[in-house]
Write a protein that binds this DNA or RNA. Structure first.
Length: 558
RNA sequence: UGGGAUAUAGCCAAGUCGGUAAGGCAGCGGACUUUGACUCCGUCAUGCGCAGGUUCGAGUCCUGCUAUCCCAGCCA
């Protein structure tokens, strides 16, 4: 346990919290929240935020709320609120009884807005969206004040109430904060607080036809929930003055502190909700949970574990500099998690038949295979050996290079858990010249565990008995994109090698598996059983491959 | 001179009062090995975006630059 604590790094947010605790700020409470808008599926970038917010709460004996930031009914749907809850729970976090919705606070927020109007700090503006944009100015030029900016409190109150009552058309009026049209911060140039929308909201239905904007709703939601540290991503840095303005305008207490951190980027994939949605909607992938997707549900289906994702989030750290994390770290984390806890079995992805000519025709013997040599408590399983087996096609080379120490004509090699065999003949298809079969002999004195021959061989191969093995589909994945620059405009370009389906032969012990079960296939990597599996047709997703030194040698020589 | 932020190895990242650059991933070299995996050992920044300055001493302080990211939704 203490080992695990060691690699959890400190970061600037913890420094802020430590300082606050030292000063007795917030009655020494730590209360965070994870506030997604239910407009899509969660991805690994959200996992960083979830682990951060829930993780800080648990580390400081505080609380973390789950809050849906549902202030824009046209984008949101219950499908997403359900998937988000499932994903957060699956990651291993518990919001207990603190599941909230910004829409819970619509009345409270409305009342606060009337208070703002009464204090002369907000006004109803009749400009069109286009006019508001034009009068906002530019990055280098100040904006100009709305002609409606100095309406009386009475008129503003009347108009705002009539907005709420549905008397005005969408887009005809908004409520704006009265701040400073010349502010160098664009967000402070009389930002819109409320807009009219007659869209049905997934929770409040048609009860409301005015909806608060994020910049207004977020600080209030945080304050209503007594959040102490409101953690968001870097692009909201410019919004912090508005966050503070909203609470200060009526001197609202408590006043949570907004803290920004850099969002996660991963090499060779893309996290933009827009692009992910496009992949789903164009049918380029099978859905939000396609194993190639960086969504939580995609990673789950691929076979990633919550432990691995949490470990990853601990290892990447939290800082304010924009960065791109190498996906090799994520892959390391899942290998690390599964290494000691899943069975190691044999699967031949590209089978080549081997006939052991000196083995009895009808002979079958039962061998004993360790389920995981590094976890002896996982025990053993029986393994059938017979005269005809399959080996990996790439494990035989007719004309092998120097450093190849697998099978070749005349060479000896060990079959894992079985015997040493020697290659005697190569059988070809007469028409195509393709190698269809190998004839080998075995040495009966070399049975695994009771070797009397004293032979040493350099290579050990995995294999599957032709008679006992079972066919399975194996899906190998490459990364979603090679590079973000390979996405053309709005149309995401899927890596053509992103999924390869193979017909493999696997050990008989895999006859009965359940979706989500994990295995390590020797040499090939970590796999999970896909829910697509049916009776007699198992589908394995490769989560990640193993390190392949041989491939590296080959590459280097080329 | 719009404003806001960031810059420490191939990648992420720690570095709180200035005291002589953590850790992880990747890489490289070696040992071990019934899979070339795993494991173990070794190695990997005379230097912290650049240039000056203060100081016995600077990644940390000061001055001036540079590069990159974010902001002109009635999205979040």
């Amino acid at each position: 346990m203490s080992n695990e604590m060691q690699h959890i790094p400190s970061h600037f947010i913890k420094n802020i919290i430590n300082e606050d605790l030292k000063n007795g700020k917030n009655d020494s409470r730590v209360h965070t929240r994870f506030p997604p808008e239910p407009n899509g599926y969660l991805h690994i970038g959200h996992a960083k935020s979830i682990c951060l917010n829930f993780g800080l709460a648990s580390e400081y004996n505080g609380l973390c709320n789950l809050r849906f930031d549902d202030t824009n009914p046209i984008k949101e749907d219950v499908e997403y609120v359900e998937s988000i809850q499932e994903d957060v729970r699956w990651l291993g976090f518990d919001w207990e009884d603190r599941l909230f919705y910004a829409s819970d606070y619509f009345q409270q927020m409305y009342d606060y807005a009337e208070g703002l109007i009464e204090a002369g700090k907000a006004y109803v503006c009749d400009l069109t969206a286009e006019e508001i944009r034009r009068t906002r100015g530019t990055l280098t030029e100040p904006g100009t004040e709305s002609p409606f900016r100095n309406r009386s409190v009475e008129e503003n109150l009347d108009l705002f109430r009539r907005m709420k009552a549905g008397e005005f058309e969408e887009g005809s009026r908004v409520l704006r904060a009265k701040i400073d049209m010349a502010s160098p911060n664009m967000n402070m140039r009389d930002p819109v607080l409320y807009r009219i929308s007659f869209a049905a909201h997934h929770r409040t239905g048609t009860q409301w036809c005015i909806y608060p904007m994020y910049d207004y709703a977020h600080p209030l939601s945080d304050a209503y929930e007594s959040i102490t540290h409101s953690i968001c991503t870097l692009e909201f840095e410019d919004h912090r003055p508005l966050y503070d303005w909203t609470l200060n305008a009526l001197d609202y207490q408590p006043h949570p502190q907004q803290i920004e951190f850099a969002r996660l980027n991963l090499t060779r994939t893309v996290m933009s909700k827009r692009l992910l949605r496009a992949l789903v909607e164009t049918g380029a992938v099978d859905g939000w949970d396609d194993p190639r997707m960086p969504t939580i549900s995609g990673l789950r289906r691929r076979g990633y574990t919550p432990e691995a994702i949490r470990d990853f989030c601990d290892r990447i750290g939290v800082a304010k500099s924009n960065s791109v994390v190498d996906i090799a770290l994520l892959e390391y984390c899942i290998r690390e998690d599964l290494k000691l806890k899943v069975p190691r079995v044999m699967g031949v992805l590209n089978p080549l038949k081997v006939v052991i000519t000196n083995y009895p025709e009808e002979g079958v013997e039962e061998l004993r295979a360790e389920n995981n040599p590094e976890s002896p408590e996982m025990g053993h399983r029986p393994l059938q050996f017979s005269r005809e087996i399959y080996i990996e096609r790439e494990d035989f080379m007719e004309d092998p290079p120097k450093k190849f120490f697998r099978l070749a004509p005349g060479r000896e090699v060990r079959l894992k858990y079985a015997y040493i065999i020697q290659c005697e003949a190569v059988i070809r298809d007469e028409a195509t010249g393709e190698i269809v079969e190998l004839h080998c002999t075995y040495d009966p004195d070399t049975r695994s565990g009771e070797d009397k021959s004293g032979k040493k061989v350099k290579g050990t191969l995995h294999w599957v008995s032709a008679e006992h093995g079972i066919p399975a589909e194996v899906r190998l994945y490459d990364h979603l994109y090679l590079d973000e620059s390979e996405t053309e405009g709005d149309e995401p370009v899927l890596n053509p090698d992103s999924r390869i389906k193979l017909s493999a032969m696997v050990e008989p012990c895999l006859q009965k598996t359940v979706a989500g079960e994990h295995f390590q296939f020797l040499r090939h990597g970590y796999f999970s059983v896909d829910p697509d599996s049916q009776e007699g047709r198992i589908v394995f997703n490769r989560i990640v491959s193993l390190r392949d030194t041989w491939a590296k040698i080959q590459k280097a020589e080329k």
